[in-house]
Amino acid sequence: MGAWRGLILVVAVLALAPLGLPPYMMTLLTEALILGLFAMSLDLMVGYTRLVSFGHAAAYGFGAYCSGWLLINTDLSLPSAVFVAAIASGVLAIGVAWVCTRSTGVSFSMLTLAFAQLLYAITFRWTSVTGGSDGLAGIPRRPGPFGLTALTSKTGFYFFVLGLLVAAFLLCRQLVNSPFGAVLRGIRENEAKTLALGYNTRAYKIAVVALSYALGGLAGALYAPFAGFANSELLFWLLSGQVLIMVIVGGAGTLIGPILGAAFFMFAQHQLSSYTESWAIYFGMLFIFFVLFVPRGIWGSVAARLRRPAADGR
């Protein structure tokens, strides 16, 4: 019950944020929520199934290009374009996962990286669809089907993102606490044993990768109309590395942690870069500090301290 109360409190505070925060903070917050959704989607793979993807930018960038292209070239409304892009990412992921799950460990990571870089190279060359190195620019936020013009405003779009993040969080939470989630944790702890218990672990892995990509694609699909552009940077390995770090800094395998990690990443980068030119130095030191002194991540450490012995377990 405490968890529900906490969740409602946080969502209420976030819902009231537009009243008190200046516009530039709202822009940052919107981006933080989008990145939070992206990081949470990766947590399904990394934190719950120990499928460490080095190529999660593939989901984000693919989703962004899809929704951007749909919004520029078709009459689809913002919600439909975002939804279609998310589904498309999930479908793409089935193919990616089918190949990648033939391997495990570092090989799996490298295969996901190879796929993401392949997409990156394709966007560079398939100029007629992707806009080449310029990317897609001027992506509109087209109003919804029922005259939902509210979504086109900054605040309206913020609520749209917040609503989707909460829905995705509830979905993921439900999922990881279900029997399906138990199998995922079984794969994480000991895949051979889980397989021996009669579970088709590869099918489970493909399913979780598909869901993870769909949600990551959703985040990217939101980013395109948020920023108004989509470019190949969104598919670059650097972003894959960054999102993985968001997950780890926040606390892998906690769902909430990666969202916090993404917000922390965003705001720390923003604050540091406004104080000093050489923010990357401090940022780098911060990562090293986290690894040495906060190995469980932000939420992992907080949760461990909050947890009473009796309340242990899920």
């Binding site: 590395g241 993985l244 770090i245 130095i281 780098g284 990562f287 090293i288 986290f290 690894v291």
Partner: peptide
């Protein structure tokens, strides 16, 4: 993941 983070951090620095 620990090595990923520290080497990534070193790259930034």
């Amino acid at each position: 993941s620990a090595f990923l983070m520290v080497t990534f951090g070193l790259a930034l620095i």
